[in-house]
């Protein structure tokens, strides 16, 4: 299987490309000249020790860094052939194409239904009430949550368990029908069972979506991803096929991290 995917990834044009990306917080440089391709309909894992800049880099893809006053991004990031930092690009459009799931589940203090319906409502994606319900149910199904909550869609999203909340957030992201879903350590606050459910979910989601996941767990990266990029001290040390990175890394620093000597 691994050889197949490797061949596939070379065949597919990347949906996202980053070239020479620098990120500064004030005067401090958090990301140094990173170039990376994100292949379509695959899961790309960004790994590295904490503070290595992988989350910062992830947040460049949907310009979430714009919300931080002191943050400055330079370099070139393209989505489907368009520079996303171009003046003409509308972040609203960008973020509706590139969704995000955060480290800690952050459902709105609204009902389960309203949580999922939030995106379709602000983007006016539904033509009717029935259509909206349809979107919500489909999204909850795709997030593997529908069966657990079908009888209590009007209860607050915060009443769910941690793992369910995180899947609710995934459903909420899916409801906007994005091309890419960015996940920032989505399982770090979850127990192993909830984590396994979400990992399986991700595997089924990659048919329809491209996923970029930041994780501090190498096992998770190895389990779910096809592509892996290893970050250290704000630099991209090595990227490529997950299998290759984990079994036969080209760089010594990668080797050290994988074997547990740094990080």
């Amino acid at each position: 299987m691994t050889n197949d995917t490797a061949a596939q990834s070379e065949a597919l044009a990347p949906i996202m490309t980053a070239r020479g990306v620098d990120v500064f917080y004030g005067k401090k440089q958090a990301i140094k000249k990173v170039s990376l391709d994100i292949p379509e309909n695959q899961i790309t894992a960004l790994i590295g020790p904490s503070g290595c800049g992988k989350s910062t880099f992830l947040r460049c893809f949907n310009r979430m860094n714009d919300t931080i006053e002191s943050c400055r991004v330079t370099g070139d990031i393209q989505f489907a052939g368009q520079d996303i930092y171009d003046q003409k690009v509308d972040v609203v459009a960008l973020r509706s194409r590139i969704g995000m799931v955060f480290q800690k589940a952050n459902p709105f203090p609204k009902s389960i239904f309203d949580n999922v319906a939030y995106g379709p409502r602000i983007h006016s994606l539904s033509e009717s009430k029935e259509h909206l319900e349809d979107i919500v149910i489909t999204s909850l199904r795709r997030a593997g949550l529908y069966d657990e909550v079908s009888d209590r869609l009007n209860e607050p999203g915060t009443s769910l368990s941690g793992g369910q909340q995180q899947r609710l957030c995934i459903a909420r992201a899916i409801a906007v029908d994005p091309q890419i879903i960015l996940m920032d350590e989505p399982c770090s606050a979850l127990d192993p069972i909830a984590t396994a459910i979400i990992e399986n979910l991700m595997d089924s989601m990659k048919e329809k979506y491209t996923i970029v996941i930041v994780t501090h767990s190498m096992q998770q990266a190895a389990r779910v991803s096809q592509q892996t990029a290893f970050f250290h001290l704000g630099e991209l040390v090595e990227s490529g096929d997950t299998e290759t990175i984990f079994t036969n890394p080209a760089q010594e620093r990668t080797q050290n991290y994988i074997s547990g000597r740094i990080g």
Binding site: M64, A93, R95, P107, P109, I122
Partner: peptide, 25 residues
């Protein structure tokens, strides 16, 4: 801030985030 991030992350404008997420909360 996590609630604001969630809303921005879905492509909501600042005003939508405030009137539909922050103020209700």
């Amino acid at each position: 801030q996590a609630l604001r991030d969630a809303s921005y992350g879905m492509g909501a404008t600042e005003t939508e985030t405030i009137t539909k997420v922050v103020l209700p909360a």
